[in-house]
Design a protein around this nucleic acid. Structure first.
Lengths: 249, 249
DNA sequence: ACCTGAACACCGTTCAAGT
DNA sequence: ACCTGAACACCGTTCAAGT
């Protein structure tokens, strides 16, 4: 089933310009542009083929036999090449800060693909190898090793990438206005007696925090929370490190 | 457009059994069962209508005029009622641990809806009010207030819920075998010189960590990473708390 | 109020056939 | 090797009409 795509994978990644000049890379770029413009819900293989002036079957020939393969390619294209190992800072904490701010910035440029990342991050091996390598090295520097290091790796990747996925998760495709109104009404109808803390923090949180917002990160970024997560995670990893004689700080 | 659903919302949440006995709740339950069984990709409004022995239009009448409304309802049904305020522990750290382990357990029972949570967590106001209230109170206990508290709230929710979303993100709908083989081959083909840390940790991480896995959390849970994230986050929040005179520990 | 029956405008994917 | 043209089996959603 995947035979053709697999055969393709074996050859030169691009291949010389085809008859009509269509390439895997060009298809991926066009798909990203389309998703940026119309949203993931508004994206379709057929629309992509129209945008490229080509029959739908053509895309399948280039990209493999399923939409998922294209999505995986898109996810890889966006989250790869964030940082090289040479760019690592002497301070592991600084390395993590830079790396994951770049990650969020990269996703923020294409917020509509965020859902794909949560879904498909598992599927891109080599492209993200530098990121994996860097995170592993920082955790070693932080004093981790063995299974605790792997756990810390998952905590860092899952926590931070997960945050970004949620932050830029899809907004209602709706007319915007109705959701905003419904959410607003719901929040106003909140039982103040039962939930005093929510009532107290409503001014600061209304449409500015998870659960209580009705717009996503591309309209209302949750930057403070992300920074807090990074810093807390770093502080916590440092605090819980097996080797607790980290001279600095 | 949403008029009917909105009118419905004003009345008793359930309404007495209709002609055929169909209810919003019954529809949501059937939808969850269907997604559990077939996966989110295999789910459709028409299939749901078939499962209920009803015309598609009937579902729209009950649930509003878009699939998204049903999805929001599903997400709310799964993540609500995890904990009441009375169940809070004296130690805020213990409260957080319990709450978010329950969250992960709840999602783990319906892994195929995980993608909806990342997407739709924004849309369920009242159902999640207890969870919001509890997290806010724990952060107050931890010494936070004002904007830093809101940032911490977002860090906790976004980090932990995001982790779970990624952990249970969709597996390839594929025949399973092919992806496993492709991923395996890619990992074997890794440049050991360029990525020594990955090479070193490959035995511990192969299919057992983000990015390097080809199965999702329902097949291969990443429990250790989640625990590490919770504990590091707690330790970090404690360490960075504005009031640093927390007597315990 | 609740549901049927049918219709509209789309999809993803496959496959023979062309060049 | 790369692409056309057409087909198959589906979708989500709407709308008049029934009871």
């Amino acid at each position: 089933m995947v035979a053709k795509a697999k055969a393709r994978r074996g050859k030169a990644p691009v291949g010389r310009p085809a008859q009509i000049g269509l390439t895997r890379d060009r298809i991926v770029d066009a798909a990203i542009a389309l998703i940026d413009e119309k949203g993931l819900a508004g994206f379709s293989m057929r629309e992509l083929s129209r945008a490229l002036g080509v029959y739908p079957a053509t895309i399948y020939w280039h990209v493999g036999n399923a939409k998922e393969y294209l999505f995986a390619e898109i996810a890889a294209a966006i989250t790869s090449n964030l940082m090289t190992v040479d760019e690592m800072h002497a301070d592991w904490r600084e390395t993590l800060r830079i790396l994951f701010h770049r990650y969020r910035d990269a996703v923020g440029k294409h917020p509509n693909v965020a859902q794909l990342l949560g879904a498909e991050l598992k599927s891109n091996g080599p492209p993200n190898a530098p990121m994996v390598e860097i995170v592993l090295r920082t955790l070693k520097q932080a004093g981790y090793s063995g299974q605790p290091l792997v756990d810390a790796f998952n905590a860092v990747i899952g926590g931070l990438a997960g945050y970004v996925t949620m932050e830029f998760g899809p907004a209602p495709p709706d007319g915007e206005g109705e959701w905003a109104q419904i959410m607003s009404e719901r929040l106003d109808a909140l039982d103040v007696e039962a939930f005093p803390a929510i009532a107290e923090y409503m001014p600061l949180m209304r449409n500015k925090s998870f659960v209580l917002r009705w717009q996503n990160g591309s309209s209302v970024p949750l930057t403070g929370g992300y920074d807090c997560l990074i810093e807390s995670l770093i502080a916590g990893l440092e605090h819980r490190s097996p080797k607790r004689m980290s001279g600095d700080r």
